[in-house]
Each structure stands twice: as structure tokens, then as C-alpha cells.
């Protein structure tokens, strides 16, 4: 008799536990406000990333096409993967002195691990993280970027 009771009580508790789980999933069925899914490619226009999001390294330029990079090479030294390469040139300033300036600030996105050391250690805050995250390209060579815009110059007052 006891074993029969135990048998049926086990069935009862088994069904009860299963229904308990189903109640959770079922309750979400009637609470559409809890949906968190985003329709990603469709919501591109309204999608805003967090302001600190590490999408890619960029070099902000002002409206006069000037950047703050002096070509000191600290980002190049600090990068753990050799992502950054700085090619510098000598330019003549207005008072006739020769000065080092960047020719190309090469950034290899394919090698970057987004550790943030280049942005953090830059003494003149020339680098920043951009919000762009759709980096898929058809050819690997497109991932090698030159961060300073063509014809750009060093901002006045940055040493």
C-alpha cells in the first residue's frame, strides 16, 4: 500500500514540478513588455552604442583638418601586437626650424585586440575609440588604415 502511495505521490510531484517550469515560460508568453530582442540590421539608424564603446581606433580631426598627433611613437611602443606603425617625416616650420611630424599613422585593424593602451598612453590625446563596429570587408588589405587624413596638419599649440 505504502509503495503504491509513494508511486502516485512521485508522479504528482513530478507533474507539479514540470508545470511549475511551464508556468514561467508561459507567463512570458503573455508579457510582451519583457521582450529584449533587437532587430539588428533593421534598427541600424536608431542603434546608439555606449560612448566608451571600443569599436576602432580613430584620430579625431577638427574642422580645419588638424589633428593632435606629434608622431612621438608612444602608442607604437605600447601596442602589444604591433598594430600601430608611425612613418614620420621632417617638415620645416615657419621660423625655418626642422621638426618631426607624422607622414602616416598606420593602424592595422585586423591585428588590434582593443586593449586601449594606445589611447590611454597618448600624451596629447590624439587617439580615441570610434563607434563603428561593422568591420567586415572582402579583402584583408582594407583593414590596414591610415588614421591621419590626407593633407592634415598638426594642431597649433600641441607639442
Amino acid at each position: 500500500m505504502k509503495s503504491i502511495l509513494k508511486y502516485f505521490s512521485e508522479i504528482f510531484y513530478g507533474v507539479k514540478s514540470l508545470l511549475g517550469g511551464m508556468r514561467v515560460t508561459g507567463s512570458y508568453f503573455f508579457r510582451p513588455s519583457t521582450i529584449v530582442t533587437q532587430k539588428y540590421p533593421e534598427n541600424r539608424d536608431s542603434l546608439v552604442m555606449f560612448d566608451r564603446f571600443k569599436g576602432e581606433v580613430v584620430m579625431p580631426h577638427n574642422e580645419k583638418n588638424e589633428h593632435k598627433c606629434t608622431g612621438c611613437g608612444i602608442c607604437e611602443i605600447n601596442c602589444p601586437n604591433g598594430t600601430i606603425e608611425i612613418i614620420s617625416k621632417m617638415v620645416e616650420t615657419e621660423d625655418g626650424k626642422k621638426k618631426k611630424a607624422i607622414d602616416k599613422h598606420i593602424y592595422r585593424l585586423g591585428m588590434c585586440t582593443f586593449c586601449g593602451l594606445c589611447v590611454k598612453t597618448c600624451p596629447s590625446n590624439a587617439l580615441a575609440f570610434g563607434q563603428e563596429f561593422e568591420h567586415a570587408v572582402f579583402d584583408r588589405s582594407e583593414l590596414i588604415k591610415v588614421l591621419n587624413q590626407p593633407g592634415s596638419q598638426l594642431e597649433k599649440g600641441v607639442e
Binding site: Y13, S17, G20, G21, R23, V24
Partner: peptide, 8 residues
């Protein structure tokens, strides 16, 4: 409710 109490 979903997993810990589940008899299976």
C-alpha cells in the same frame, strides 16, 4: 522554478 525544482 525552471530547472532546480525540475524532476527530470
Amino acid at each position: 522554478q525552471l530547472l532546480t525544482d525540475n524532476v527530470i
